[in-house]
């Protein structure tokens, strides 16, 4: 009976979504087909053309220079350029949550003991994979302004590599002092870049560097720098939290 009711509920939900998308009141589609959307006069058109203030000329990949935000990835230009202050807030949220983990799980700690010690194959395989994973994470945030990706996933991939070493090696620990230095430096540099923008351009996190050609690696002004800082900060914060979870308190 329970299964029947849940199936009925799911069927009703599906029918509701289908009907509301395909048969609205006036007989026209509420949800246009892919490629049929008319963006003229919408805000998103301005974001796609990357020129909110000037005339909306179409951007050509690899040729257009000195656009307002020179990022080839539209999401990045919104997240790290137009709405960069919001991203600073998100990074702060992560900082506060890892701070909570640090307060709860702080003090003098040692690694958890495994019931079965990891063998040679696992330890060395994990070390080989660690290098590849860190390179992939750096690629992720270095290309954040060109392809999907960016600071948060890149930093999470680096932290996942650290987690892999924690799981595979029963003696490995990161140096927490280094983690604190990396995290503090990255966070402060983000705010300092924002203040530099305030000094030169008139508002916080103004993109004051030359934008270059859309689609090149060295383009989009401060966006790659900010994404590298975010990647470093997120990676070190999550690594610190992982260290808290993989260790136990030393009995005094």
């Amino acid at each position: 009976m329970k299964k029947f009711i849940s199936l009925l509920l799911i069927a009703c939900l599906g029918a509701f979504i289908f009907i509301s998308l395909y048969f609205p009141g006036g007989g026209t589609l509420a949800f246009p087909y892919y490629g049929d959307v008319d963006l003229n006069g919408r805000v998103s058109q301005a974001y796609i053309d990357k020129s909110v203030n000037g005339p909306n000329d179409v951007v050509v990949y690899g040729e257009s220079t000195d656009e307002e935000s020179g990022s080839a990835n539209m999401v990045t230009s919104i997240v790290v350029d137009y709405r960069s202050f919001d991203t600073l807030g998100e990074v702060t949220v992560l900082l506060v949550s890892t701070l909570g983990v640090g307060i709860l799980l702080g003090g003098k700690r040692k690694r958890l003991e495994y019931k079965h010690a990891p063998n040679f194959i696992l330890k060395h395989g994990a070390r080989l994979t660690f290098g590849l994973l860190v390179v992939f994470g750096v690629y992720m945030f270095a290309h954040g302004h060109l392809t999907p990706g960016g600071g948060f996933p890149g930093g999470s991939i680096i932290a996942a590599a650290i987690l892999l070493l924690y799981l595979a090696d029963d003696e490995f620990r990161v140096k927490l002092a280094g983690i604190k230095i990396a995290e503090g430096t990255a966070g402060s540099l983000y705010v300092i870049i924002g203040l530099a923008g305030l000094a030169t351009g008139g508002y916080f996190l103004y993109n004051f560097l030359p934008n270059g050609t859309v689609g090149k690696l060295f383009s989009a002004g401060i966006i790659p720098i900010v994404y590298a800082l975010i990647g470093l900060k997120v990676g070190s914060e999550i690594s610190g939290a992982i260290d808290g979870f993989a260790t136990e308190e030393v009995a005094e």
Binding site: I121, L122, G125, A126, L128, T129, L132
Partner: peptide, 11 residues
Amino acid sequence: FIAVTNPVGSS
């Protein structure tokens, strides 16, 4: 990457 991870994981 597959050559490193897949055999190690299975072992």
